[in-house]
Structure formats: C-alpha cells, structure tokens
C-alpha cells in the first residue's frame, strides 16, 4: 500500500465528509441563502435597466460577472478562513501528528472548497434562470465555456486562499489581510460596471489578477457576440484568459506546497494553546 496515495484517498473522503456536514449545517445553509437572496434582489431591482446602446438588460450583463466574483471571492476567502481557523483550533496539528497526515489534510481542504463552489453558484444560477429571460446566449458551447472557466478559475485562485490562510497571523486578521484586498480587486475587475470606466493604471492592475479574467471568460460564455464591444479591445481575448489563469495555477501549484510546509513546521501545541487563550480574551 502506497501511504501517500492512501493519505490522498483519506483526504478526498475527508473533504466529502466536510462538504456533507456543511450542507446539513444551518449556519452554512444560512450563508448560501444570504448570498443568493442578496444577489437576486440586486439583480431584480435592476431588471429594467438597459445597458446603453447594446439592447442588453442589466441582469444579463451582470450575472456572469457576479458568478465570477463569487467564485474568486469564495475560493480565496473560504480556504483562508478555514486554514487560519484550523491552525488555531488544532485540526491541523492533529494531522501533523499522523503519518502523511498533512497530505490528507490539504487534499481534504482542496476537495471541500472545490465542492462548496457548487451550492454557492447553483443557488444563484437556478433561481436567476427562473426569474430572468435571455441569460444564456452561448448555448451548449456557452455551457462548455462555463465549465472550463470555472475549473481554471478554481485552479488559479484556490492556491491563493491556501497561501493566505498559511501566512495570516490569526483568524481575526483574515479580514484585513484577505477580505480587504479581495474586495478591492473585485471592485476594479469589471464585475459591477465595465472596466473601461476606470483609469488606465487601475485597468492594468485588475488584469494582473485572476478575478477579471474569470469574469471575462464567463461573460464570453453567457453574453451575445454583440456585447463584445463593452470589453477592452472589443475582444473576448479567450487565449489570454487561458494563459493568465494557467499561469496563476502554475505559480500556485509551485508556491503553495512550500508555504504550507513552512507553516506546518511551525505548528505546535503551545501555539494552539496560545490561540485558545487569545480567543477566550476576545470572548470575555
């Protein structure tokens, strides 16, 4: 029996268990519901707005971008929070005390956060199709594009979440270290309004990160070809989309194991104990 392969198998099962437990938890159900209702209300109140000169209704234009933003946001902040928390509550230390435990743990995290993407996207996608007309112009080819953009987007952003969760000093800091930059990045990535309305250098910054490209890829899947005039360079830039996302995925795949190993090396019982005491002080 190959212990590494065995540990990865255990990790996959761990991720699946975490996913099932999360679906059954009222807390997580509440989170999915809250995100979905918020997004749908936003689209609903803007349902009669027409984007000037395109004949496109606002929900049609905004939905793919919002899905892209949710993907990037959820897949970065989710693992960052989970990892920061499980460093403090001893989950990670338990795995460090097992043979090949870290491999199983990381596999479990990757599995869980990939799976969690489904409910968060589906709870928005399904009701949107019931509420609004003319959302998908790409047909079967469009859905195919959705799948590869989501998969590449996942591979590009998930490692960022793991790295963030490994380097933040404490769970409380995920907000300032993680949430803030991701929110700013989302705001400048052409999710809620076209990127052309921003200054040139801001456009440059946005295009260095995956969020913009995930949104662009999803828009190319959902929107009619005529909408391409709203994009930079009047093109869907499919080639560059693939290139940028793959580049991020490669950087992540190279960097993440190193960062995780460094973080795991520093885990010890007294660290967990210190975090527990710090958190008790927060409560009282």
């Amino acid at each position: 029996m190959n212990p590494t392969r065995h540990a990865i198998g255990l990790g996959l099962r761990r991720g699946w268990t975490e996913f099932v437990l999360s679906l059954r938890s009222p807390q997580d159900q509440g989170f999915y519901l809250f995100t979905a209702v918020g997004t749908l209300l936003f689209l609903w109140f803007n349902r009669d707005n027409e984007l000037e000169g395109t004949g496109l209704m606002y929900p049609t234009y905004a939905l793919p971008s919002i899905l892209g933003a949710l993907l990037a946001f959820g897949v970065v902040i989710g693992p960052a929070f989970a990892l920061a928390m499980e460093r403090e509550d001893g989950t990670l230390l338990r795995h460090k005390a097992l043979p090949h435990g870290m491999q199983g743990y990381v596999t479990g995290q990757l599995t869980f956060h990939s799976l969690s993407l489904f409910p968060s996207l589906l709870t928005i996608l399904v009701p949107s199709f019931l509420l609004f007309d003319g959302l998908m112009h790409g047909g079967a080819a469009g859905w195919f594009t959705v799948v590869w953009v989501v998969v590449l987007g996942l591979l590009a952003t998930l490692p960022l979440g793991m790295i963030l969760g490994s380097i933040v000093p404490s769970t409380q800091k995920v907000g300032t270290w993680g949430m803030l930059p991701v929110v700013v990045l989302t705001a400048i990535s052409g999710i809620f309004f076209p990127i052309q309305s921003l200054w040139g250098w801001v456009q440059g910054v946005a295009q260095a990160f995956p969020t913009y490209w995930i949104g662009l890829g999803l828009r190319s899947a959902f929107l009619p070809d005529s909408a391409v005039t709203l994009e930079l360079g009047d093109s869907w830039r499919t080639g560059p989309t693939v290139a940028v996302l793959v580049a991020w995925a490669l950087v992540g795949a190279l960097l993440t194991p190193r960062v995780l190993r460094r973080m795991a090396r520093r885990q010890s019982g007294s660290q967990v104990e210190a975090a527990r005491e710090a958190s008790l002080q927060w409560v009282h």
């Binding site: 001893g90 043979p99 090949h100 019982g269 967990v272």
Partner: peptide, 19 residues
Amino acid sequence: DAWRARVGVVLQSWRDHAR
C-alpha cells in the same frame, strides 16, 4: 512518516471537528 506512525500524541482539543 514511518516513525510518526509509531508515536502517539495526545493533544488538547478545543473546538476542532465540532460537526
């Protein structure tokens, strides 16, 4: 890891794996 398999460590849990 073969060494790790022969050693047991009792850690103090706190709130991990609550579900």
